[in-house]
């Protein structure tokens, strides 16, 4: 393994850690709103780090650009979907958890 390989491996592992955090939050957080926070944010950054690591490994600007495009698409979809779910949950009177 060379220097860039180590950097890519580090990025991939960090991405995996954020996915784990997202899943933990999804399982442990107390209501649908806080779970949305955990899931969308941690997973988006996790995917971003994995995309960065893979871009380094691909050795091609074209593939790197395509990976970033896919990431942006997931971001856009995630933002719209989490807004829709949060808004729908409020409309249907799903209560928020308070400390």
């Amino acid at each position: 393994m060379t220097g860039p390989d180590y950097l890519a491996a580090l990025l991939l592992l960090a991405g995996a850690l954020f996915f784990l955090a997202g899943t933990l939050g999804l399982l442990r957080f107390p209501d649908v709103y806080t779970r949305l926070h955990a899931l969308t944010k941690a997973d988006n950054v996790g995917l971003g780090l994995i995309v960065l690591g893979l871009s380094l490994q691909s050795g091609s600007w074209l593939v790197a650009g395509k990976l970033i495009l896919i990431w942006l698409l997931v971001l856009l979809a995630g933002a719209s979907v989490s807004h829709l779910i949060a808004r729908g949950a409020r409309l249907r009177g799903i209560p928020e958890w308070r400390r």
Binding site: L17, F18, A21, G22, L24, G25, R28, F29, P30, D31, Y33, T34, H37, A38, K41, A42, N44, V45, G46, G48, E96, W97, R98, R99
Partner: peptide, 24 residues
Amino acid sequence: HSLLGAVDVAQRAFRPARPLNPGM
């Protein structure tokens, strides 16, 4: 801010006490 915030959410998810104080 994505990165900082994700670290923040992640540590809330990992910590056993699950420190949350949500609001609207």
